[in-house]
Computed example of a mutant assay.
Amino acid sequence: MGGGAGGFVPPPPPLHPVPSPDAQPEQPDWNIPSLSEDEARNAFVEFASSNCCYSDAPAKDGVITNMQSFNTYRYRLETFTESRTTEWKTKPYTGQNVDAGPQPAPPPWAIHVQTPEMFKDREDNVKVPNTSSVKPCHICNATGKSPCESCKGSGKKKCTSCSGSGRRLEESCDTCSGTGNESCMACFGHGTEECKTCQGKKQLEMFINLKVEWKNNLEDYVAQQASGIKTDNLTSVTGKRLFHDEQYMVYPVFGFPDPNLSQASERMVREHQSNFAKTARIHKQKHTIELIPITKVNYKWKDNSHVFYVFGNESRVSADDYPATCCCCSIM
């Protein structure tokens, strides 16, 4: 530990071998059934009904004039990392054991911390062994008291009855006896309150804290598609899984029918493994390819043409130009 808390602690070299191209996607299966008109309308009605600012009339009574199916690939790479930082911390001393002495503190990455569920964000804080000691509270000079924040240590505040004038209705104020001040209710006129740092204990335990952060670093690539739906809409849905691989470090996808996806996989895997290994320990990676169904639906409502989209396994709906919203939605 070198006698102090050093902030960011670089990870040790990886112990696992370089990944090999064992798992690769097979020829995609495009057998995703087309959405029926009834299914599209039901999804549209549910969408409109769930929005308090929408009338469901266009969804129920609009005339569907055309439906067109689109599919797009989504490649997703997830890299689960662990990073460690150290810093000095204090807490009120209430008689707990302290362990600072001749025994040196262990290096941050030598401290055992239980790894949580993979690909889930989490943060743990661990007191580093052999670093805790007791010292007087530096905030209150070991008195256990600090100036009252409400009255700035005076014990008095402006009288609320006479606004500090000392008089009410041309007579001396009864509340403050004409002084214009009354006792501070926060500190009961003492001018001091319990020290927030030591909580009145006068002493602090000082130790080095190890903060361990596990993070799932997720990145998506969505292949170009001509449906017109905004790509951001697709982040919240799932598709038909075509490929999944999970290991310490994954190998980029190659030989996929869409060369742009293979190129994106190669770039993303390279960047993840290079960038994250500098600042964290990589525990595991996984990548998937999904085929996301998209149906573009043209419909007419009151002689005007509109469009909505039904997408993903969840049959989510996007309708940016929904034609019947209430006044409050228009204003917003």
Rank of each mutant, 00 (worst) to 15 (best):
V113R: 00
A57N: 14
R84K: 14
M67H: 04
P107M: 00
S55Q: 08
T94K: 10
G62Y: 04
Y75V: 03
E82V: 14
E82N: 11
P104C: 06
N97H: 12
Y73C: 04
P108E: 08
R84F: 08
F70H: 03
W109Q: 09
M118S: 07
F70E: 02
N71T: 01
N51I: 12
C53H: 05
E117F: 00
E82Q: 15
P106Q: 10
Y75E: 05
S83M: 12
V63G: 09
M118R: 08
R84W: 09
N66T: 10
Y93Q: 02
A110E: 13
I64C: 04
S55G: 10
V113W: 01
Q114M: 02
I64M: 05
D56I: 09
T81P: 13
M118N: 04
A105R: 07
N66E: 14
R74K: 10
D56A: 11
F119L: 00
V98Y: 11
V113Q: 00
N71E: 03
C53F: 03
R76T: 06
T115V: 10
S50K: 07
N66L: 13
C53G: 02
D61E: 15
A105M: 09
A57K: 15
E82I: 12
P107N: 00
E117V: 01
S55N: 11
D61A: 09
T90I: 14
Y93A: 04
A57E: 15
D56V: 11
P106N: 10
E87D: 14
K91A: 09
T72V: 00
H112D: 01
E78Q: 10
T65Q: 13
T65S: 15
Q103A: 15
S55Y: 10
F119K: 01
G62I: 01
K120R: 12
D99Q: 08
P102Q: 14
Q96R: 09
W109R: 09
F80R: 05
L77T: 01
E82F: 07
R74F: 02
P92N: 13
T72W: 03
F70K: 03
I64L: 02
M118F: 00
V63F: 10
T115A: 08
C52V: 11
T90K: 15
E117N: 02
G95W: 12
R76N: 03
A110S: 15
T65R: 15
E78W: 05
L77V: 04
S50D: 06
P58T: 09
R74H: 05
